[in-house]
Design a protein around this nucleic acid. Structure first.
Lengths: 230, 230
DNA sequence: AAATTGGATTAGTCATGGCTAACATCTGAA
DNA sequence: TTCAGATGTTAGCCATGACTAATCCAATTT
């Protein structure tokens, strides 16, 4: 049914890319995407219906929405542009990692692919955006993202920060100030069993307490605590 | 009447910036700008009426159009973005000067001002775009552009290339191959009195014949032929 | 002076993608 | 089981900015 590759509009690209980013935490509800895009639920409902008609999303009224394979392919092109631009903004233009999501969002629909490719090449083909998310290649292949977050760790476990959610600038500024950036090694010193607050320690930074929502924004890979320093 | 600084749309910016660039050769006719923007004259007519209502252009039906001071101010912001982006594309990303006008046009409406400023800074505050046109500063001040073109030179006169029209990619490729780039010194060896063809010579490049339209695309400053090699 | 012609303009239509208001559906509690 | 409140959808509207077709000015030609 959805056999029309007829150049997506800016709005369509916005919906698809946000759908992709929200889909990490399960199927997406209409109100959720409306809120992220700053439109009314009515508008989002209309656009989702349209995208469904185009075969880009799976959406059968009053239920949750998810991308079809075609939709995911299209979304990955936009996500790729977004993440390359973010890297460029931090690495070449020295913007802070808490600013670049918003800026890249404004730019991602207007940069011709040849320019994105040239920037990527200039940067030496970076593997991830500044927040640690993998950059899809030109054919739409992406590395898997870790499912484990700090909220899933137990006291005494060590883990390496892989990526962080990029949506909240002030959270990002805080995480950086506490050393919680991709690549950082952390140790869980406490997990409060009542309210699920987690306390972590990063070398050379004091202990940091994280509320559950914050802990879920930091994705990690467990470090096998075998000896030998790298 | 035109007291609304209410964020211009992409289309409005396009009209203003092309109006600015066409205005160099006198007031602009409706069909001319329609053609440049790739829309029908009817569409252009409607938009010019709208811009006139906003106080950004001077346009009283069936006559030529020109920018008001407000309109010129707005246009210069767009022109500034355009030219900074062109410089970035040639200097940092190694695109050819015949490609960058089109690419910059796609990008100029989407780059936030802070990004344009950062790029400008990265490039060391260039004075001109790759075609030699001056880059307006943040306050909308621009250096004057020379009125003299190669078509206005006499045999035996020497001149320095200041800037070239950027509209035709194949012309640009040709001009570069003949050494006719900003900064080049040229000598007029012949002016054909019948068809106004001009023959010029650039050091280390053979003689080049230019049809009148081409000669008008190359703006120059006369070199005072006083002795002393620089 | 009248007629022809070409560029400019108006009138009317369409597509996109927002909005509000009203209606439908789902869910969780009584 | 039923009903209240939240969430989703439809209906109808508006603005933007393109298009075609028809008309209007003005400038040149006869």
């Amino acid at each position: 049914m959805g056999s029309s590759p007829h150049q997506l509009s800016r709005a369509e690209e916005d919906y698809l890319s946000d759908l992709y980013r929200l889909a990490a935490d399960g199927p997406v509800r209409t109100g959720e995407i409306a809120q992220r895009l700053g439109v009314t639920p009515a508008s989002a409902s209309g656009m989702l219906k349209h995208l469904s008609h185009e075969g880009l999303v799976e959406h059968r009224g009053y239920g949750a929405t998810s991308l079809t394979p075609d939709g995911e392919r299209a979304a990955l092109q936009v996500v790729r542009r977004h993440r390359v631009i973010e890297r460029f903004l931090t690495d070449t233009l020295q913007f802070g990692w808490e600013q670049v999501d918003v800026l890249a969002h404004q730019m991602e629909h207007a940069l011709p692919d040849v320019v994105v490719d040239a920037i990527e090449c200039l940067l030496g083909d970076p593997a991830t955006c500044p927040h640690g998310h993998p950059i899809p290649d030109r054919d739409g292949h992406v590395a898997a993202e870790p499912a484990l977050t700090v909220a899933g760790l137990l006291p005494g476990e060590r883990a390496r920060v892989e990526e962080v959610d990029e949506f909240d600038p002030s959270l990002l500024a805080y995480l950086r100030s506490r050393g919680l950036v991709p690549g950082a090694l952390l140790l869980v010193t406490q997990v409060n069993p009542i309210d699920a607050t987690v306390v972590v320690e990063v070398p050379n930074v004091g202990p940091t307490a994280l509320a559950p929502a914050t802990a879920r924004a930091v994705r990690v890979a467990r470090e096998i605590p075998q000896g030998g320093k790298t």
